[in-house]
């Protein structure tokens, strides 16, 4: 499943995308993210996967600065931490 967490408003599209078919539920993204955006929990089909916390999804662009600005300041990002390449950003 390709899960898009976030929203689009007048100013742009802000989605963090988790491909749960690729995700192995290891949780490396949970510790890598400086803003603690992710958690690991079972989805509705019983698979343990990474997901964006519900409290974050509705204000994701204010919690996560976006992939490029974040990667400029942080050594390990959610993208690089994920060995399965399951995480991507739209901004």
């Amino acid at each position: 499943m390709e899960a898009n967490y976030g929203y689009s408003d007048g100013s742009g599209d802000y989605f963090i995308i988790v491909d749960t078919d690729k995700c192995n539920g290891c949780g490396d993204c949970v510790t890598a993210c400086p803003e603690r955006v992710f958690e690991v929990a079972p989805d509705d089909y019983g698979k343990k996967v990474a997901l964006v916390k519900e409290s974050v999804a509705s204000k994701v662009s204010y919690v996560c600065p976006g992939y490029k600005p974040c990667s400029a300041n942080v050594e390990t990002t959610c993208h690089t931490a994920c060995k399965m390449g399951a995480i991507s950003h739209t901004w």
């Binding site: 204000k59 662009s61 204010y62 919690v63 600065p65 976006g66 600005p69």
Partner: peptide, 12 residues
């Protein structure tokens, strides 16, 4: 303020 500061942080 959270919104605007979030915006500001994107450009530093």
């Amino acid at each position: 303020a959270v919104r605007i500061v979030g915006l500001a942080k994107r450009i530093g």
